[in-house]
Design a protein around this nucleic acid. Structure first.
Lengths: 202, 202
DNA sequence: CCAATTACGCACCGTTCGGTGCATAAAACA
DNA sequence: TGTTTTATGCACCGAACGGTGCGTAATTGG
């Protein structure tokens, strides 16, 4: 991590790396990994190709850094959700977060993770693997949280944490796809509400 | 429709258009619309660029014809599902079909429609619109079927056909995403079974 | 002031993209 | 047979792709 506190020698860069990452995020979000060309990216970031390569490495590195920023920003709802006090609130929070993140007014529709994972082709095989692992990690977080809930008696002892987590991520993924297809926030929240009517999904 | 019964003048083509379409389907399915390059497509189809253009028009036309073939083949489960005698069987059949279609041994994972719809970027805006309309049509088919079920007394009078249809397609879309991420058929069928445990989703 | 270091703008690299011109081959019509 | 029509193979098009070499601008350290 290059801290901005460390005094850097040489000509200082003329742009804010975090802002540039956020601009790049929008482009990747809208066009997917392969659809986001360097011209599109650097135009949105307001910097030259050379500056982008100097600051972030290459396109794949840039995407990885965007993904980290996404996890701290719009994608933080997963981390927030597993911190909820009860399993029901975890599920509620997760679905509501997926709806909100997928239908933010100033952002492209859907989930960056879902979109980029599906949009990557033969090129960027590394990106494909990383996205798969990333989504698997989110599912594992939920599964762990539900296992904990079972241990605490918050969920029935015969509940299947793996199944519940997979079901929840499946609905979340579906919500992202629906959002990409143009579904509105209220429409999707209604689906999330309907999903929660059967909790805890024996 | 150019029938093969009509006697065609000139040199006959040396390949089967349906087989070629099926080969192209695999490529689009695996790489998405933009990720499927003409070289990839024509190599898989075993024909030259020129033959492909003469037979199908251009890349977008080819994709549209592939999509029609997909609807008649692997994607036929939607049409089959709405033909089931009861609303419950419609839902069951739809989800099971989504699981099966997304985890066919010889085919790429997931649903061609979902994958291509998300994978398309700025280019192929027409394709993007067509995919959105296509998926909306499938949802409308389900909604109409559930409205009929309400009219028949098969579903409660206060059931929300629109919501049920959207929920079902959301889960179906999610299953496709999960399949793309490497989930197995039994894992996904378990999710489908869990979904059906709460039918009719008041 | 001068050297070292870093950032920037521009022009350019080789490759691949979707799509085409053209000569030739193979069939139906006359 | 000869003409017309269609299919095919090959080479090629301009544009866009991800990525880079190089000269110059701006800063820190001496």
């Amino acid at each position: 991590m290059d801290n901005q506190e460390t005094v850097r020698r040489g000509r200082p860069r003329e742009f804010d790396a975090d802002v540039a990452l956020d601009d790049a995020m929008t482009v990747f979000w809208e066009h997917g990994y392969e659809g986001a060309s360097l011209t599109l990216l650097t135009d949105a970031m307001g910097i030259s190709r050379k500056s982008m390569y100097a600051a972030f490495g290459n396109k794949e590195d840039l995407f990885l850094k965007v993904l980290q920023q996404y996890e701290r920003g719009p994608g933080a709802y997963v981390r927030d959700a597993v911190g909820a006090p009860t399993a029901r609130e975890v599920a509620e929070s997760y679905l509501a977060g997926a709806v909100r993140a997928g239908t933010q007014p100033g952002r492209p529709a859907g989930c960056l993770g879902v979109k980029a994972a599906l949009a990557v082709g033969a090129a960027g095989q590394g990106v494909q693997d990383i996205m798969t692992a990333w989504r698997a990690g989110r599912q594992a977080d939920l599964r762990g949280r539900f296992q904990q809930a079972i241990a605490e008696g918050d969920l029935p002892a015969d509940a299947d944490a793996e199944l519940i987590a997979r079901y929840l991520t499946t609905v979340g993924d579906g919500l992202s796809v629906q959002a990409t297809g143009g579904a509105t926030r209220t429409e999707l929240q209604r689906v999330a509400d309907a999903t929660m009517r059967h909790w805890p999904l024996i």
